[in-house]
Design a protein around this nucleic acid. Structure first.
Length: 506
RNA sequence: GGCCCGUUCGUCUAGGGGUUAGGACGUUAGAUUUUCAUUCUAGAAACAGGGGUUCGAUUCCCCUACGGGCUACCA
C-alpha cells in the first residue's frame, strides 16, 4: 500500500430511508478513516433521477449525525473536491466517457429499451456484449456515415464500455482475498445514459479518482461489477491510484433468506431504518431504531458486531473503542442474519451503563411525547437512576417512570379485587392516618411501621404489599415499593392511597 | 440458466492440524428480589456431506450439497 492519505467515502443514493446495511457500510468507512487519521466523505449518488426522493439526502445526514459518525466532507460541508452530489457533477462524466470512446474502449449504442427488452425475452442468456453487439445498433456495427448522421440528429444514445475478450480480471479484496473474473462472462455495461447522466459504474470510478479515495468499502452485492470498474480504472489510465477494495458481507433477513431490504420493515416486526422515515409516496411513517427507543451508542455497537469482532470476547464497545480496535482483517466473509433480540440486549446494556445525567434528555423526550409533565430535573435524575436497569428500550421509560409523575390512569384490579377484604380497607385507612402524622417519608422507616401495622391488624405483610404497589404504581412492576413512596413524597402517597382505595372497594 | 461469493450451537461469533470446540444473544432449570426487571449459578445446543494430504483434520486441497449476490439506460 502506498503511504497516501486515507480517504474513504460513503456513497448512498437518496432513494428513501437509510437502512441497516447502509449505516453499517457508513460505520465501517468511518471507523477505518478515523483509525487511520483519514477523511470520511459523504457523496450523494443521485444519478437516477427517476428514483430520487426529496428529503432523503437530509435524512441520511440526520442519521449519520445521530449515530455520531458525521462526515468530514459532504454536500453541505464541502471540502476541496466539491461538488459532492453526482447530479451536480453531471458535466464531468461525459468527457471521460468520450475519452473511452476515442480510445476504443467504449462505443455509442442507439438501441432502444424496447429493442433490448425484446432481445432479452427472445434470446436465452442475451447479453449486450461481444457475442451480440455486432448485430445491434452501435458505433461498432454501423457504418461511419450512419453513426455521424445519428449523432448529428441527436438520436438518443448511450455509451457502453467495450469489454475485451478472453481476459482474466483479478484483484485482491481486503476482505475476500484474490477474486477473479473472466471478461467473456461480462456484458458491455452502460457508462453514460441517454439523459447524459453517468451510471454508477462510470461515476464511481471517476469520482473515486477525482476525490482521491484510497479505500473503497461497499456491500458484497457489488462484487460482480467490480471487474468492470477495474477495467475502467485501467482504461482511464489511473490504475496506480485505484483504491483498495473491501466488499462487506451482507446483512440478511433473520427469517427465511435473502438480504435485508427496506421493504422488510413492517413484516419483520422491527425497524430496518436508523431513524423514522416518513415515506411521502405512501404517506406512512416507517419506524427507525431511534424512534423505537435505541441509543445511538447501542445501534452502532450492534452494527459493528455484525460481521466484525475483535476476538477478545468483548462485545460492548463505544464508538471511540471501535475506532481504536477496528481492523479489516477481522471482518468476516459470510453474511450475517440480523437478530433483533440481540440488538435489544445491546441497548439494555447501554442504558445500564449510561449515567442518569446522560440519559436525561432522551428519557425526558420519551416522557413528554407520552404527555408526562416533568418539572424537576433532579427528581427526574433520581427516577432514572432507580429504574434504568429495568429498561430495554428508551420507550420503556414511560411505563417504568410514568407513575412517578402522574397518578396511575388505571389499576390492575384483577391483582387485588378478588382477594380484597374489609380488613384490608381498615388497614389502609390506618396507613393513611399513619402517614398523615409523619413529617416526611423515609423508606426504611415506612417499611418498618407498615409491617408492624400489618401485624397489629392480623394481616400478613405479603397480602398488603402488592395492594400498596398497585395503589402507587398501578401494576405489578417497579422498584422497591417503599422507595417509590419515599420518592413520591408524603402528600402524593396519601393521595394515591385514598384514590386507589375508592377504586378498590367500589 | 450463467458467473461470483460464502458455509462452526436456533442467531452473532472465537478458534485452528492433536482443544472437554470457547464466548454472547435467545432458551431451560435454580438462587436472590414479599411485584416486575436486574443480578448470580447451572444445563441443553455446532465444525454441511464425500474424497484426498497427513501419524492425526473441524482446521489445508478437491468435489458435491446448500445458502447468498449479480445477471437494467437502479444503485
Amino acid at each position: 500500500m502506498s503511504d497516501k492519505r486515507v480517504r474513504v467515502r460513503f456513497a448512498p443514493s437518496p432513494t428513501g430511508g437509510l437502512h441497516l446495511g447502509g449505516v453499517r457500510t457508513a460505520l465501517f468507512n468511518y471507523l477505518f478513516a478515523k483509525k487511520n487519521n483519514g477523511d470520511f466523505v459523504l457523496r450523494i449518488e443521485d444519478t437516477d433521477q427517476t428514483r430520487y426522493v426529496a428529503g432523503a439526502e437530509q435524512y441520511i445526514m440526520d442519521c449519520l449525525n445521530w449515530c455520531g459518525i458525521a462526515p468530514d466532507e459532504s454536500p453541505v460541508n464541502p471540502g476541496q473536491y466539491a461538488p459532492y452530489r453526482q447530479s451536480e457533477r453531471k458535466s464531468i462524466y461525459r468527457e471521460y466517457a468520450e475519452r473511452l470512446v476515442m480510445q476504443g474502449h467504449a462505443y455509442y449504442a442507439f438501441d432502444t429499451a424496447e429493442e433490448l427488452d425484446k432481445n432479452r425475452k427472445e434470446i436465452p442468456n442475451f447479453q449486450y456484449g461481444q457475442v451480440y453487439r455486432d448485430g445491434l445498433r452501435n458505433s461498432l456495427s454501423l457504418p461511419q456515415h450512419e453513426i455521424d448522421q445519428l449523432l448529428d440528429n441527436h438520436t438518443p444514445h448511450v455509451i457502453r464500455i467495450k469489454i475485451p475478450a478472453d481476459q482474466t480480471v483479478s484483484f485482491t479484496d481486503m476482505i475476500r482475498g484474490r477474486v477473479s473474473f473472466e471478461t467473456n462472462q461480462l456484458d458491455d455495461k452502460v457508462l453514460l445514459k441517454a439523459d447524459g447522466m453517468p451510471t454508477y459504474h462510470l461515476a464511481v470510478v471517476v469520482d473515486d479518482y477525482l476525490m482521491k479515495i484510497s479505500h473503497a468499502f461497499r456491500g458484497e452485492e457489488w462484487l460482480p461489477s467490480a471487474p468492470v470498474h477495474l477495467l475502467l480504472w485501467d482504461y482511464l489510465g489511473w490504475k496506480a491510484d485505484m483504491p483498495q477494495w473491501a466488499h462487506l458481507p451482507l446483512i440478511l433477513k433473520p427469517d427465511g433468506h435473502g438480504k435485508l431490504s427496506k421493504r422488510d420493515g413492517a413484516r419483520l416486526g422491527f425497524p430496518v431504518y436508523a431513524m423514522d422515515w416518513e415515506n411521502t409516496q405512501t404517506g406512512t411513517l416507517e419506524p427507525g431504531f431511534e424512534g423505537v427507543g435505541f441509543l445511538p451508542e447501542a445501534f452502532i455497537n450492534v452494527l459493528a458486531t455484525l460481521g466484525w469482532n475483535d476476538s477478545s470476547g468483548h462485545e460492548v464497545f463505544s464508538l471511540s473503542e471501535l475506532v481504536e480496535k477496528f481492523s479489516i482483517e477481522r471482518i468476516s466473509k459470510a453474511g450475517a442474519k440480523f437478530d433483533f433480540e440481540k440488538a435489544k440486549w445491546f441497548n439494555a446494556e447501554w442504558i445500564k451503563r449510561s449515567s442518569a445525567e446522560k440519559l436525561k434528555n432522551q428519557v425526558e423526550k420519551v416522557l413528554i411525547d407520552n404527555g408526562v409533565i416533568v418539572k424537576d430535573d433532579n427528581y427526574l435524575l433520581t427516577v432514572i437512576e432507580l429504574i434504568k436497569d429495568r429498561c430495554t428500550l428508551l420507550t420503556d421509560f414511560y411505563l417504568q417512570a410514568g407513575y412517578f409523575f402522574q397518578i396511575p390512569a388505571a389499576y390492575d384490579l384483577n391483582a387485588v379485587k378478588p382477594k380484597w377484604t374489609d380488613e384490608k380497607t381498615a388497614f389502609f385507612k390506618s396507613v393513611f392516618e399513619l402517614l398523615k402524622s409523619t413529617p416526611s417519608i423515609v423508606a426504611a422507616d415506612l417499611e418498618a411501621s407498615f409491617k408492624a401495622l400489618a401485624e397489629e391488624k392480623g394481616l400478613k405483610t405479603g397480602d398488603v404489599m402488592l395492594p400498596l404497589r398497585i395503589m402507587l404504581v398501578g401494576g405489578k412492576f417497579g422498584p422497591h415499593v417503599f422507595d417509590i413512596a419515599a420518592l413520591l413524597g408524603k402528600d402524593e402517597t396519601i393521595n394515591r392511597i385514598e384514590q386507589a382505595l375508592a377504586a378498590f372497594v367500589s
